[in-house]
Computed example of a mutant assay.
Amino acid sequence: MLLPRCHRIKQPASRSLFQSRPAGRLFIFMKRIGLTGGIGCGKSTLVDYLIGQGMCVVDTDQLAREALSPGQPAYDTVMESLKGACRLEDGTLDRSALGHLVFNDDKKRRWLEGLLHPVIRQAWESRLHTWDREGCPMAVVVIPLLFETQAQDLFDHVICMACSEKEQLHRLLQRGWSQEHIQQRLKAQWSLKEKMDASDGVIWAEGPLSSTFQQWDQIYHRIVSP
C-alpha cells in the first residue's frame, strides 16, 4: 500500500517574481501548477473545487475530448486510420471503444499519444499565455501523464493526487472497468509511488472530501506565501 507523504514544496524555478509587461507595468509572475496523479485518484473532484474557488484551471482530458471532436484534424486522422471503427451513429468518437483498442495495443497507443500530446500541449500553453497577459496570479494545468510527457520543467510546482492501491482499484471497478482493462491502463503510466516521489507536494485523496480540499488549501497557501 502506498503511504501518504508529507507535503514538500520546492522553491520555484530561479526567475524574478516581477517582470515587465509589454505595456511597461510590473506584475507578479503567474505561478504555474501542474496537477497530476493516478487514474481514479480524485483529480476531477479537485478541479471542480478549484473552479468553484475562481481559479484558472485547464484540464487536458477536456482538451483531448475537444481535439477528437468532429471537424478537428486529430479526429479526421483517427477516423481515417481506424477506418471508422470507433465512430458512433451521430458521428462522434466512441471514446470507450478507442480506449479499449489502444490500451490493448502498445503500438496504437503510442501512435495516438504522438498525435494528441503536441496538440494538447499547444492548447494549454496558449491558455496559460492568455491568463498570464490577463494578470491571473496562478494557473493549474491537470495532466495525468505529466511526467510521462516530460512536462514537469514547465511548472513552478507539481502536485500529485494519490490514494491507496485498494481504494484506487475500488473506484475504477465502480466505473465498470474490468480488472484486465484497469491493469492495462495502469501499466501505460508511471506508478503512483513514482509520481509521488517526483512531485513537489502530494494530496492524499482518501476519506472525506473536506480533507482533500483542506490539503489543497494548505499547499496553496505555502505556494503563495513561501
Rank of each mutant, 00 (worst) to 15 (best):
K187Y: 14
W177Y: 15
Q11W: 09
A13H: 07
R171W: 08
G176P: 06
W190M: 13
G52N: 15
W190F: 10
S81E: 12
H221Y: 14
L128N: 08
K43L: 08
P22T: 01
L209T: 14
G99L: 02
S96K: 15
G135C: 08
E167S: 12
A23K: 04
V141D: 00
E125N: 07
G135T: 05
N104T: 14
C41M: 15
I219E: 03
L63A: 05
V58H: 03
R15Y: 07
S14A: 14
S44V: 06
E180F: 01
P12R: 11
V102T: 06
K10I: 01
W124Y: 12
Q189N: 06
G40K: 08
M1T: 11
T36L: 04
Q183C: 06
E66N: 06
Y220L: 13
G114K: 00
V141K: 01
V140Y: 02
D106V: 13
V78H: 06
A74E: 10
S225R: 13
S44N: 12
I219S: 04
Q215T: 10
K31T: 10
F213R: 05
L115Y: 11
C6W: 10
A67G: 07
L192W: 00
A13E: 07
L128G: 03
T45F: 07
P4R: 05
G34A: 02
Q62I: 13
I51R: 12
P70Y: 00
C136E: 15
W124S: 00
L2G: 02
T149G: 01
A205I: 00
A67T: 09
